[in-house]
Amino acid sequence: MEEMSTILSDLDEIKSALKKSVTKSDLTDIVKSIVKEMLEENKKEMETRVKEIEDVYMRKCGDLQDKIDGLGLEMESLRELNAKKDTAIRNLNATLDDAMRIANEARSRSNYNEQYSRKNNIKIFGLKESNGENVSSEVCKMLKSPAKVELKEEEILAAHRLPSKFTNAPRPVILKVKNTDIKSRVMKQRAQVKSAGIRISHDVTLLNTRLVQRLSNHENVSQVWYYNGSVFAKLVDSDARIKFDITDDVDLKIRKKLRHPST
């Protein structure tokens, strides 16, 4: 019993000593110390995490910048390629324009030469056709009767029928005379020949014929005629004569003339 009493007494002394040694201030310092250590650990952990995130971000930014730089190079290459293509297209267009100009000039010259070769030709429509006929003789008779035109067979270089798609009408006649004076003598009597149901005309090339048709169907054209190898037209409400070529843009040429009548 005495030992137990001694132990209890010692415990009371220790408890009393502890109460005296651990104050509120000490506890505050301990808590602060613990919190500080925890904050330091959290800070280090956050810094580590931030550094990891920053590294990932920088790496991705670097990859993205590489891709942007690559795209920039591709864009520059595409711009250079596009510039080369534009130059090539301009060159091709210039070449095409030259080719078109040369082709049109060649086409116009060819048509002119063909028309010139026909300058002494006359086409006759409606001349009765018979088996074994002498076309030159029939033409001379026809011209002498209604038109009183003296055309001798020796003034005719060639006379023959042309193919025709109409089976119920006589085939047209192509007549080639020696010179333009003879042709003019015949063409002056077209009205008298027409009164007999026969029509005579110039031997116009297919391209010039199409040009005459285009002009005849134009709303701003009042008159179209062929003269000395060329096609002419007169506009509505105008006395001006306009010479047309097969390569002309008919609408454009007429618009220009309407805007500037004096030119």
Rank of each mutant, 00 (worst) to 15 (best):
N208W: 02
S145T: 13
V31Q: 08
A158M: 09
G132D: 07
S136D: 02
R185T: 06
S16K: 15
Q192R: 12
M4Y: 09
A233Q: 08
R185Q: 05
L11W: 08
K43I: 08
K141L: 10
M4S: 11
N168P: 03
L235I: 02
R190T: 09
S164Q: 06
N104H: 10
K19N: 13
L211C: 01
R59W: 03
A99H: 00
M187I: 14
A159M: 03
I242N: 04
L64A: 14
F232E: 01
V250N: 06
S117W: 05
K44D: 10
S117G: 03
V22D: 04
V204R: 09
V173Y: 07
K15P: 00
S25G: 10
Y227K: 14
Q65I: 01
S9A: 13
S130R: 12
E52Q: 10
H260A: 13
I124G: 12
R190L: 03
E54S: 12
R59K: 10
N228C: 11
S33D: 09
F232A: 02
E133Y: 03
A17S: 11
L18W: 10
K15T: 08
V50T: 07
V204G: 06
R255A: 10
K128H: 03
Q65P: 00
D55G: 09
F125A: 02
V135W: 10
I200T: 06
S164F: 06
G72M: 12
E155V: 03
N82E: 06
K256S: 10
M4D: 13
R90M: 14
V250G: 07
I7K: 11
P170F: 02
V177E: 06
V177M: 03
L81N: 15
H202W: 05
E47K: 08
T95K: 00
C140N: 02
N111G: 06
L27P: 02
R199W: 13
H160D: 07
H202C: 07
M100L: 15
T205M: 03
L8A: 10
L64T: 04
L27Q: 09
S33L: 14
R241M: 12
R255C: 02
S9P: 00
I7N: 07
L215A: 07
R101C: 01
V250P: 08
M4A: 09
E45A: 15
V149P: 04
H218F: 09
L11Q: 07
L235H: 07
E76A: 11
H160T: 00
K20N: 11
N93P: 00
E129F: 01
E105V: 00
T263C: 11
N179P: 11
E40R: 08
S21G: 02
L73R: 13
K152Y: 13
G197Y: 06
K256G: 01
D66E: 11
I30A: 12
D245V: 01
